[in-house]
Amino acid sequence: MRIRATLNALAVRLDGGETPEALRKALADVPNLPLEVEVSGSVGIEVLQALAEIGQERGITLRPPRGERLIPYTEVVDHTLRAGNRIESPGTVVVLGDVNAGAEVVAGGDVIVVGKLRGLAHAGATGHEEATIWAMSLEAKQIRIAQHFAQAPAGSTSRGPERARVVEGAIVLEPWGRKKP
């Protein structure tokens, strides 16, 4: 169990394994503020009943568990991907080379290309909208982040190192790695 004070309440996180007695004791020793409770582990009915009793006196709000970003691992590809190559990973993929036209990189996390990205890159393939695509030279005809996709305008050229991310439901490209004037 973790308890911390916020501006107008006490944030209580139940991790599982708490007892009603431990909950009552912990909350007796802190200021009498409303409770914002997050249950992130398995708790028994007795703990929930004790929490409900305490909440009747103080006020209580239940919050969903914080979305903890779990990307299983980072996969490093130490060569250029040629047409027909496909890399798929539940985590982040780093390509130390180019991703040529006809090659695909599909990642649950970010896609990072230390070279030219001309093939298909799909970051956040499991629905993770905070994923990004980074490339030293972003020349792909299409990129995808979660369920969003963007196509390069006809005749577009790379402007140097860029990052693609989702902003207000659309993929935007931003320069990165260069000092601002």
Rank of each mutant, 00 (worst) to 15 (best):
T19H: 07
W176I: 15
I145L: 12
I71E: 08
R178G: 12
V172E: 12
P175E: 09
I71N: 07
R163G: 06
T19L: 14
H122P: 04
P34W: 13
D29C: 11
V105G: 09
K179M: 09
V172D: 06
L173Y: 05
L62H: 14
V167T: 13
A152H: 07
E36W: 08
E88I: 10
P161E: 00
A121T: 06
P175F: 03
N100Q: 15
L27C: 08
L120Y: 15
D98T: 00
K180N: 11
S137H: 03
R178I: 09
K179R: 12
L173C: 04
I87N: 01
E46M: 05
R58W: 05
A11S: 11
L70P: 02
E21N: 09
A121V: 04
R82K: 11
D15N: 02
V30E: 14
T132C: 12
L81S: 02
L23S: 01
H148W: 03
D15C: 01
A135H: 03
H148E: 08
Q142Y: 04
K25Q: 15
H79V: 07
A164V: 03
A26H: 04
L51S: 10
G108L: 10
A9G: 13
S158E: 06
G91C: 04
R2F: 08
A28Q: 14
F149S: 06
E162M: 13
V111L: 05
I145M: 11
V30Y: 08
L7M: 03
I54K: 09
Y73E: 10
K141C: 04
A52T: 12
V113Q: 00
E75L: 15
T92V: 08
I145E: 10
I71Y: 07
L7G: 10
Q151V: 15
D29V: 12
G44R: 09
R58Y: 08
W134A: 01
P175V: 04
S156P: 05
L81D: 02
G155A: 05
H148T: 02
N85I: 07
R58C: 09
V47S: 09
V113C: 01
A131Q: 03
T126Q: 15
A9T: 11
M1Q: 03
G91F: 03
E68Y: 13
P31I: 11
P175K: 12
D98R: 00
G108P: 10
A170V: 12
A5K: 14
Y73I: 01
V43A: 11
P90T: 00
G160C: 10
G41I: 03
V95W: 00
I133W: 01
A5W: 00
A150V: 08
V172H: 14
L96V: 04
V93G: 03
G97Q: 00
N32F: 13
P175R: 13
P181T: 02
G160Q: 08
E129S: 14
T6K: 14
A131T: 00
G84P: 15
